[in-house]
Amino acid sequence: MYHKEKVGSKHARELLEMLLRIYTPDSMRKCIPEELSEICGLFPDICLIVSRGDIHEVRGISRRTVYMGRTVGIVIRGTPYPYPAFLQSVYKCTGDIRAAIEAYPQGVRAFLYGNDILVASVKRIYRGFRAGDIVGVIDSEDGSVIGIGRASMTPEDLEEALSRGESTRVAVKNIFDLGWFLRVLKPIEE
């Protein structure tokens, strides 16, 4: 049921390449997670890319291992994306936020329900993306990365749309947000 692949897994490599297009290899060197593998079949429609970190393989149970370590990426319909918490750790580790937008509370609320970010909800733009690129979506209230999306326009076009008051245009299309698990899984109480 669970498919696990070590990196060189194609998706994990693609994920790191995506980040290396945003940050220089030098600035990313100490932020790249180690021992990546991919876990599929647990959740509908997505696979997880995990970094094993300090967890070593326990002899004889790899067939029974469902998950281990820390999630750094998700794969949706064959395309890998950085997991929000991992993106946050990259921002912290590099000391530099790139390819991201910061959203006002009303945009954050909508995004966490699976909706897109409209131009009116963009509070701040962190450059380093083109139209069609992956961007991080940041909650302006506390700086948390709440999801990832695809930029509908360049930073310049976004600034222009803001200044022209084109408030209902989509700035970032929702790809994955932190509300996903809650929407997809039936909660189990404890």
Binding site: F43, I55, R64, T65, Y67, M68, G69, Y83, K186, P187
Partner: peptide, 25 residues
């Protein structure tokens, strides 16, 4: 239970812990 494992993993991922290995035995 696979359903309960999904909840377990989603909680680990949501809360960001790195020291947990999940098994199905």
């Amino acid at each position: 239970s696979i359903n309960r494992l999904r909840s377990l993993v989603s909680n680990i991922v949501r809360m960001g812990f790195g020291s947990i290995m999940v098994t199905r035995i």
